[in-house]
């Protein structure tokens, strides 16, 4: 069953996440795939990644911050932000920071403990794809985006707050 929601429909995933990657030899084990690699790995082995056949994206853990990505941010087609546990809210701010401070236009993906009841808030903070935890009911998750018809705040999804619209 598909476990990836992009915008608000189910998709096949064209990316492979390397949750753990310590040395460049791992690239030979996954030849030609489109890889989401850890931020540290991406910075440390940028030379080796230049020669890699597939597309390359990165993921940040919740204790890493957008500013650590550096100048090459806009070369990235996708940045995944990890939720080690769904109740760790740091990645919401990281997504917003990527969109607002760095004007990042690529795809921002939620990975890790991604559950139905947090999808709506994630979508408002700048996430546009959601790699659901394996046990989640994908059809049920699609309904999450309609939990609320509107919200009060200025968000990435709706930059004009309600008080300027009512």
């Amino acid at each position: 069953m598909q476990k990836l929601i992009s915008k608000d429909s189910l998709m096949d995933d064209r990316w492979t996440i390397l949750k753990v990657a310590t040395g460049p030899e791992i690239l030979q084990a996954v030849p030609g795939k489109n890889l989401i690699v850890p931020l540290k790995f991406w910075k440390q082995f940028s030379e080796e990644l230049l020669d890699y056949a597939g597309d390359v994206a990165i993921w940040l853990d919740s204790d890493e911050q957008a500013e650590q990505i550096g100048e090459r941010l806009h070369e990235l087609p996708l940045i995944a932000l990890n939720f080690p546990v769904f109740s760790d809210g740091r990645s919401y701010s990281n997504a917003r920071e990527l969109r607002q401070r760095y004007a990042y236009k690529g795809e921002i993906r939620a990975i890790g403990d991604v559950l139905r009841d947090q999808l709506y808030y994630m979508s408002r903070c700048g996430f546009d794809s959601f790699d659901l935890r394996q046990d989640q009911d994908s059809e049920l998750c699609l309904q999450a985006f309609n939990d609320f018809k509107t919200g009060y705040q200025a968000t990435i999804a709706e930059p004009v707050p309600l008080f300027r619209r009512r």
Partner: peptide, 17 residues
Amino acid sequence: EIIRQWSTFHPEFAYLP
């Protein structure tokens, strides 16, 4: 009241420390 509306369902601050 202005703070109430801003803080109600604030999507970024629902899972604070």
